[in-house]
Amino acid sequence: MFSGLSNMQPRQLAAQILNFALVLSTAFMLWKGLSVVADSSSPIVVVLSGSMEPAFQRGDLLFLWNRGQETQVGEVVVYNVRGKDIPIVHRVIRRFGGGSEPLHLLTKGDNNAADDTELYARGQNYLNREKDVVGSVIGYVPAVGYVTILLSEHPWLKTVMLGFMALTVVLQRE
């Protein structure tokens, strides 16, 4: 694949590099476009825990929507705990405020015994809809996100995958 690069015209080389770069940048911009449309920093997330079973299993792919801030009780939202960067998918069980006042939410996992006050940051008893919530779940695809869970829980799989990819590049030469 790379043996041909050395005897290329500079413009051809530039065009070849551009093709590769456009694959990456277009994938990234599709993601950002989705973010802009859904008004969410992370419009697609993977369910990491079983706390919402049987509604969502580990590995389900969720699509989020963050327009319309009047979240109701019963909606499933994804939020980030302050100070930690782990998104959590739980259901809204109480709401306070709303309208002209800032909307505050209390959440609970369907499969958990207690509500989420234990999970929130120290001193925090509820979520701020505007600041903490990434979006409401509007759709999901079962199981397809499981690959990312496997990769993050077993880092050696990444090494195996990279090695395999490198090997195919080397073997494809002829």
């Binding site: 551009l18 770069a21 456009l22 990456l24 940048s25 990234f28 911009m29």
Partner: peptide, 9 residues
């Protein structure tokens, strides 16, 4: 093309 890549970057 390169303007596009710069925007994305």
């Amino acid at each position: 093309g390169y303007v596009m890549v710069v925007i994305a970057g």
